[in-house]
Amino acid sequence: TYTWNTKEEAKQAFKELLKEKRVPSNASWEQAMKMIINDPRYSALAKLSEKKQAFNAYKVQTE
């Protein structure tokens, strides 16, 4: 089980997950979700809006 003390740690864990699963920077949210949804870190960020925000930040960083 994973635990995160801060929102920032949770966001980092979520981005690490995207990186580890090699989600391409041109992937849509739907494509990315299919690649990461079974990992416990997918739940790091509770709100869908937070997940999408972190995903978009990840995409910008990896382009």
Rank of each mutant, 00 (worst) to 15 (best):
P24V: 02
N26P: 02
F14C: 02
D39W: 00
A13T: 05
E63A: 13
S43W: 14
A44L: 04
W4T: 06
E50R: 03
L48F: 05
P40L: 09
F55I: 02
F14E: 00
A13M: 06
E16P: 00
Q12C: 13
E8D: 08
N56H: 13
E20N: 05
L18E: 00
M35N: 04
K34Q: 12
N56L: 14
Y58C: 04
R22V: 07
M33G: 02
A32I: 04
A54T: 08
Y42R: 01
K34N: 12
A13Y: 05
A32C: 13
N26G: 09
A44K: 03
Y2V: 15
A32F: 01
N38P: 05
P24L: 04
F55R: 02
R22G: 12
Q31K: 07
T6V: 04
A46N: 09
S49C: 11
E50H: 05
K51I: 05
N56C: 13
A57I: 07
Q53P: 02
T62Q: 13
S28T: 13
E9H: 04
T1F: 11
F55N: 01
W29K: 00
R41S: 02
A13P: 01
N56V: 10
Y42F: 10
K21Q: 07
T3R: 07
L18C: 06
S49G: 08
E30D: 10
K11I: 15
R22T: 05
Q53A: 13
R22F: 07
T62F: 14
Q61L: 13
Q61N: 11
N5V: 13
S43I: 08
Q53S: 11
P40W: 10
P40T: 06
W4G: 08
M33P: 00
K21I: 04
I36L: 05
A10K: 07
N38I: 07
K7E: 13
A57P: 01
K34W: 10
N56T: 10
E8R: 08
K15T: 15
A13F: 04
A57N: 11
N26D: 15
Q12T: 12
Q61P: 05
E20M: 06
K34R: 14
A57E: 15
A27Y: 11
T62L: 14
Y42I: 02
S28V: 07
K7L: 12
Q61H: 08
Q12L: 12
P24S: 06
Q53F: 07
V23L: 04
Q12K: 09
